[in-house]
Amino acid sequence: MTKCRDIKEKLPAYFEGIVNPEDKRLIGEHLLSCEKCRVALEDLKKTQALVHNLEEVEPPPWLTQKVMSRIRKETEQKIGIFQKLFYPLHIKLPIEAFATLLVVVLALFIYRATGPEMKALQTAQAIPKDSVVKEYEKAVSSPSAPSTPTLKGDISEAARLEEKPAPARPFEQQQIEKKREIVKENESIASQGAEIKETREHKAMSATPQLKTVASKKPHIITITVRATNIAVAGKDVEDLLNKSNAQKIKCESLENMEVITAELASQKIKELFEKLKTIGEMKEKGTPPDLSEGNIIVRIEIVSNP
């Protein structure tokens, strides 16, 4: 049985004439007997008529002009940049191609001219470290004990001081200046790199592994401050103590209100030294405690007057 709801759903299609013949027949039959659906169809027709009869609205007379002016403006802007760059093609294209070629050739020329020098500079950077070792060996160490670990320690210290020019005590400042001079000397040697390039490359090759081993076995440095009433007496006592502990490379330096003693000592004897130093005066230790199992330690003892 045909229901009104189904019919109403099909009414728009029926009205437009796009229903199949079977539906058309069924709807037609139903409409003859159903007042409600007939009214619904009438309403639909009237609504369609009202909508369909809506008058066409004229667009503003300036619309075409405005649209076209916007389009032309847009096109001009686009063409403007393009024309600036490439037009007239027969003149600008060859110029641009030539300029590009010139840039490429210049870049290649510069690269080829500077490339070897850059390489020489890079290899020369490895040499100063090696030279610093030798120069500093001459300057600092005694001829009797040319042990590598000491130098390594000092080099690392020198590097540290180079990086961190912290407010230093007079002794440290002297050390820094000395080391800076050595580095400068070596830099001037390195600047002659172009001439002795090949020899240096060889040297650098041989120096690099040496430096690596040096860096891996650098001795620890401990700074100890001892406060004593009599600096001179305490200095001598400390020197005796170091001799008894079989310390090497003992070096004393008298500064204003301060005695500085540096020495190299077997790490096993550090504890013993500490105990003995306490008997001389009030002791203060700087630096991280070393691994006391093996190797040497550089000890820097600063004796200052007890106020």
Partner: peptide, 30 residues
């Protein structure tokens, strides 16, 4: 333009808006 304007006008019910819509539509189309 007339057909497009009428579509825009019937959709918005506003003459000024329809003018703007049609301009933008033609510009996008171009």
């Amino acid at each position: 333009q007339k057909k497009m304007f009428n579509i825009a006008y019937r959709m918005t019910g506003d003459y000024e808006e329809a003018s703007e819509i049609v301009q933008e539509a033609f510009l996008s189309a171009y």
